[in-house]
Nucleic acid binder design. Sequence first.
DNA 1: CGACGGGACGC
DNA 2: CGACGGGACGC
Length: 287
Amino acid sequence: MANSMVNCQLWMGSLESYMTETFILNAFRKMGENPVSVRIIRKKLTGESAGYCFVHFASDEEAMDAMHKLNSKPIPNTHPKVRFRLNNAGRTLIDREFSVWVGDLSSDVDDYNLYRIFSGQYKTIKTAKVILDVSGFSKGYGFVKFGSEEEMKHSLIYMNGFNGLGTKPLKICNAVPKPKGLFLPGIPGPSNQNDSNDFSQYYDPTTYFQNCASWQPGSVYDQSSEHQAACENSNNSERKEDDLDLIEHTIPLDIDKMNREKMDADCNLWDALESSKWLPYEMLEVA
DNA sequence: CGACGGGACGC
DNA sequence: CGACGGGACGC
């Protein structure tokens, strides 16, 4: 909760040398945003643009809203098209983040859609990002960052299969951190290079696999009661509707119903998992 | 189905 | 099916 964002600022990259403070300010205004000020960072010696700037807003909320609305969209008046590259400012690294991978996004889903859907249901949503290819088309997946591990885990269950964003049910998975640097899996690397005996760059595959696991062992117990409670609520609140009811052709109602059913199904899955007392090797009693 | 491609690590 | 952003007040 501390510093979800810093000082009402966005970092903006991919600046061309012709982009002045005024140019950027105007670009935001044309897109319907109203930043307070823009400061381009310049190289100390030469005075030329360092290629990025900080855009100041009246509030963190405004800044985050602008970020999700504009990120990856074309910047007005850029002839070879340049896209907004925005991020939350602040070198002071954000506390801790918990990400989920979101898949099965239809092509109409953008950062802002995704952001609104999640922040409508979770309090600690920090950012949402749809990954685009070089020409700006969605790759069909994205990442949502939470400030709370509990909410992140909750969304793994409850937002999986969600209907109402784009045209397909959402798929939610644990986000596995992108491996840094080299050591891509499956690429052994040249073997008769003179070995420099430097193993420091290798990461531990065990760690990697733990990151990939859908459920962490401890968390099953930590969370089970909460989830059971949630399941009960969900069951109680489900209205009895039989199949003979006329189908309501207002989409939101159908979606709500479908989502309730989906959540119930997921709760059942959770219960099954929980009661199976699935444990990894490491947890088995030895002594 | 094939498809080897770019940043690699400072202070 | 799929896994990311890279760049940060500076050289």
